[in-house]
Design a protein around this nucleic acid. Sequence first.
RNA 1: GAUUCCGUAGCUCAGCCGGUAGAGCAUAACACUUUUAAUGUUGGGGUCCUGGGUUCGAAUCCCAGCGGGAUCACCA
Length: 586
Amino acid sequence: MVKFSIFASLIKAMSIALSEQEILRRESLQQLRELGINPYPAEAFNVTAFAQDIKDNFESNPDTYQNVVLAGRIMTRRIMGSASFAELQDSTGRLQVYLKRDDICPGEDKTLYNTVFKKLLDIGDYIGIKGYVFLTQTGEISVHVRELIILSKSLKPLPVVKRDEEGNIHDGFTDPELRYRQRYVDLTVNPEYKQIFIKRSKVISSMRDYFNTQGWIEVETPILQPVHGGAAARPFITHHNTLDMQLYLRIANELYLKRLIVAGFDGVYEFGKMFRNEGMDRTHNPEFTSVEIYVAYKDYIWMMAMVEACLEHVTRAVHGIPVVQVGENEINFEGPYTKLSMYDSILKYTGIDVSAMDEAALRKTCADLGIEIDDTMGKGKLIDEIFSAKVEANLIQPTYITDYPIEMTPLAKKHRSKDGLVERFELFVNGKEIANAYSELNDPIDQRQRLEEQLILAGRGDQEAMAMDDDFLRALEYGMPPTSGLGIGIDRLVMLMTNQHTIQEVLFFPQMRPEKKAKVVTTDDFVKIGVPAEWVPVLNKMGFNTVEELKAANPNKVFNDLGGMRKKLKLEITMPVKDVVMAWFV
RNA sequence: GAUUCCGUAGCUCAGCCGGUAGAGCAUAACACUUUUAAUGUUGGGGUCCUGGGUUCGAAUCCCAGCGGGAUCACCA
């Protein structure tokens, strides 16, 4: 282009913060409008076919694909004069399309092909096509385009991921930070990751189906809670203005679901987000999804069988078989699972019998095993430390660990026959806990005592000790039937089901630190001190994002640099005279 | 929170013992009517994360900060 149009120059002046490719796309956008083409049409575009379906079924049934309508993003283009190939990506996959100039431009006017398709469309643009499916000379199923419609112009260039014939990826979009912060880009250019989220959805929906089939009902309980109960963890704190009171984001929903059992439901369950104000790593996100279910007149023995049936159902729904490959291990979710008591598991993997030890003996055992402990830890916590350090990693196939010490489990019923233990199990798979269940404590007097013991632990400095919940105790005093309850960490279950080893890969939007925010650029502030609006982006480009930064600079140097920038950026805007520039600094 | 590695073009990455920036893809122009990691020719594109320090000179060396990854600690 010999000369910028006024418009192009204006775009350029306003877009100095943009990359070259972004500026070009904005110019293409404007040229489309000048040609009378709306780059963002309002009308619905009804598709009749999908990429994957065409690839699967065209060859066995070619006649049904002689008139297809598809929509999606242009992902690659191979232009050869008056004919071109492009790849269109829809929600199901990619399909090659073939465009021939004289087919999409049957008349004299070849603008749609020569200008719109070849010059003004880019990778990432949404288009709709109408045409027929055929086989190219090299045997690839393709759509011969008869009609081309622009559905949405993309202004930022997508990363281009190249794949060769063997499926090797060459210029992958792999930076985890960018992938998690811009999941929309990740899933566009790495569509294979969509499978993780499709499976995630299947895990939840198949589990919901299973529960509903049993006649249990799905409920919703408060996320904002005046007392955070039901688990041991530090909460997020918030404030309600009208009530002028502190509220907590729930760390668990257990105590509310039990209130509903008191209310007379036989089975209630809730899928939902829980919030814990603790560390983040590859198995922890501050908000995570769990499912909890409570069933009246059952105990934890019954619950084990239920979990086996449920997880087998889920695994079959996701994989077709009850077996899933996780890293090196092939994990089989068919029940019954191995059962091992907490004490027996420690005996098995360390050779030490801790069942009769007091707190002092446990402390010595931890020291002997080289396990770090501190003074706030009670007997239950010490046993848990030994278990975590020595046993957990060995539990690869689904294994129930049962009968926990009473000190670490204030909401579970005392064991029917073993003193000092509670009726509890946790399910371990691939070395990680994924489920936790009790015969729920329904003796209100016992429950009050246990919560009071937690208060003592809190007094010793345990920030995760449970809080007293008087309303929950009141509910128990009215009477809760014998009940078994279960919680499953959905994110971790999905990690297992999709063979992922970080939680970030199974969350669409994992928690991240906020992006560094560019200082707010306020054109108005610059205009107020006399800077012409079209020069503000130039000052920004020179590194002056606020009036204060500008005023701190050397006026003569700024004046000289403005001229330099004008030349460098080939701007066709009027250079302010020196006196005007000097006036900015008074 | 601790340790450690990383931050260079839209993306993936080189850049040595300090001398003012490179490749592939993407992008622009031209050619090309069945290509497919299309091809050929010629271009353009950079706050080398930020701020200090050392130096005649810093993407490079040193310090601090910001962001991310990995491992550990806490937790589910």
